[in-house]
Nucleic acid binder design. Structure first.
Lengths: 338, 338
DNA sequence: ATGAAAGCGCTAACAA
DNA sequence: TTGTTAGCGCTTTCAT
């Protein structure tokens, strides 16, 4: 197989301990004579020695790997097209991890049978949790997790401040969107979300929706909540809103598509606003007006919090909350006939 | 720390050997009484036991991880915007790896100091090599690599058929582009590439360019090769071509941008064709006509070849070559005044 | 059906 | 300055 430390030691006429010290110890505390050290280094080169990282990781109980549980609780998204939420996050993860000398591993469900296994079997020094689905199953998973973790789109408090978190300011972001629509003259505004998939953030955003609507003296009752899985029904009659805010860019895109299929023109007859504002919004037709959250930056900073946790520090701050902005594109305009 | 096998064994009143057999052996050869097995399983659950994967990997000399050396020999590309070459490949890698129970790790250069380290230190069961930069440094790296690898965009023969490879049919792809331009009526066609970055494929594509030009009886001398790093100069005077084929989508986009900056309209005054045809081509204005290669599929199949290598089989076939097609978009039209 | 023993390659505490 | 020893947690012969 490949060359081990023992062989290098033999060739240099020393013990493996010395080889380890010469090759891998911090320069300060080597305490090996330069002559010996040189002999060892030469032997290592001659033999093409390379440390067995798995042996070392095993002994040191660290892997320099950060795991991203991918597709747990939702479909695995594509990177090369379509909604770019995950791709944006990944860019941030990669940047943050590489800066700190960590690598990023995308981990399928079946690795180690259950996600819990992948989380707790020593494979990773830390984990990124970006599933926004707070099912009992997922909560239980987080509870049992024994490695440092950072939460994205879930507040630290939801899990007893056990893990640091990175979120955007949903309330403020939604406020921007409502303000924009109200300024355009909209009064009948709906909020589309997936009723059967309880994203943590859809509650927050729905709540923000209600509060900002009422701030403008607008109605935001049951009728203003549009179930995304029931859009066909919704559009079967003339929509009861002149504008719809989607819980994320995927949903907003779906709303646009379904509306257009029904012959409802966007933005003339229906304005649509999304949440996320990635490059995907630019690809849609019309281009989607969307609330921007700095996903790549959030991903990078999440890794930095995680790195703090992994090195035993208490992450400071425990929560990072990013303000949103609004990217106005072609999917919003003044409402018809007003 | 976390629960070890020894503790489970103690609780169940057996030895670690038995625990290992019960919990991790293939169902067939367990050879443990059902009563004991049940006791062990219960003890494991009670204690929340989870195998230490690093210990196992170390012993078994396998990691179930596939490494993607990322940004070696080129800038690390973004996933969420811009040229989507790497994102498309990644989608394929992820799909192929997950299907086979492997995870995908993106590995920064600094991991283990040199890329060679990351390649040969036992971290990965296999590697994907998609750097198309055949520098002497890179060649040396491949030579020293001691784990199974699959090459993308580099033919197996370039490295003595030591590794399987996945490529597209560059000649056929370029042929499609030239045919398209000639059909439109173009005669003065240039090929843009980065003269100072010797991508393996730019030689092949340049060669294909020459051969297909001459098939049509068109000139393809030095003047038809446009150095992408010198585009400002090229466009300082009226371009000597009515159409330019870029070595990849990034370059083609750059050609378009530089032309438009100079007030040369695309496609009216200059037709542009790219290579790769990802979603990025749709984002450009005008949308970029481009040679399509099925990157995601290629990535997935590359992993499958790699998995064969990793399991000790000779990959069959050793080379996979994919035909290209041409996606005609808005960046090509009939030449002006002809 | 179960156990004992060895060892994967490395590093660190301790000894010389 | 160098060596000895032990052990990380697991799996696998080889006994019993």
């Amino acid at each position: 197989m490949s060359v081990t430390m023992r062989e290098v030691a033999a060739k240099a006429g020393v013990t493996p301990t010395v080889v380890s010290r010469v090759l891998h110890n911090k320069a300060t505390a080597i305490r090996v004579s330069e002559a010996t050290a040189e002999r060892v280094r030469q032997a290592a080169i001659d033999l093409g020695y390379r440390v067995n990282i798995m042996a070392r990781n095993f002994r040191e109980r660290q892997t320099m790997m950060i795991g991203v549980l991918h597709g747990v609780g939702f479909e695995r998204p594509l990177l090369d097209r379509g909604p770019r939420y995950f791709a944006s996050l990944m860019d941030g993860f990669i940047e943050g991890a590489f800066e700190n000398g960590y690598s990023i591993t995308l981990c399928p469900k079946l690795l180690g049978q259950t996600p819990e296994d992948a989380m707790s079997d020593g494979r990773f020094d830390g984990l990124v949790w970006y599933s926004t689905h707070p099912s009992e199953e997922n909560r239980e998973m987080l509870r049992r997790c024994s490695v440092p973790m950072v939460l994205i789109h879930t507040r630290a408090a939801e899990y007893g401040n056990r893990y640091p978190s990175v979120t955007c300011d949903n309330d403020q972001g939604v406020g921007l969107a409502i303000d924009h629509l109200v300024e355009l003259g909209h009064k009948k505004i709906g909020f589309a979300y997936e009723a059967h998939i309880p994203f943590s953030e859809s509650f927050l955003r729905a709540e923000a929706f209600r509060s900002h609507m009422s701030r403008h003296g607008l109605r935001a009752g049951e009728c203003e909540l549009v179930d995304a899985s029931d859009l066909d029904n919704y559009f079967a009659q003339t929509p009861r809103h002149t504008a719809i805010l989607g819980h994320n860019e995927t949903l907003a895109a779906l709303v646009m598509q379904k509306a257009i299929e029904r012959g409802i023109s966007v933005p003339q007859q229906l304005s649509v606003v999304g949440f996320d504002s990635t490059a995907y919004c630019e690809e849609l037709s019309p281009k989607l007006t969307s609330i921007y959250q700095p996903l790549a930056e959030m991903g990078r900073d999440a890794i930095n919090l995680l790195v703090q946790s992994m090195s035993g520090q208490k992450p400071d701050p425990l929560e990072l909350i990013y303000p949103c902005s609004l990217d106005i594109r072609g999917s919003t305009s003044i409402p018809i006939g007003e």
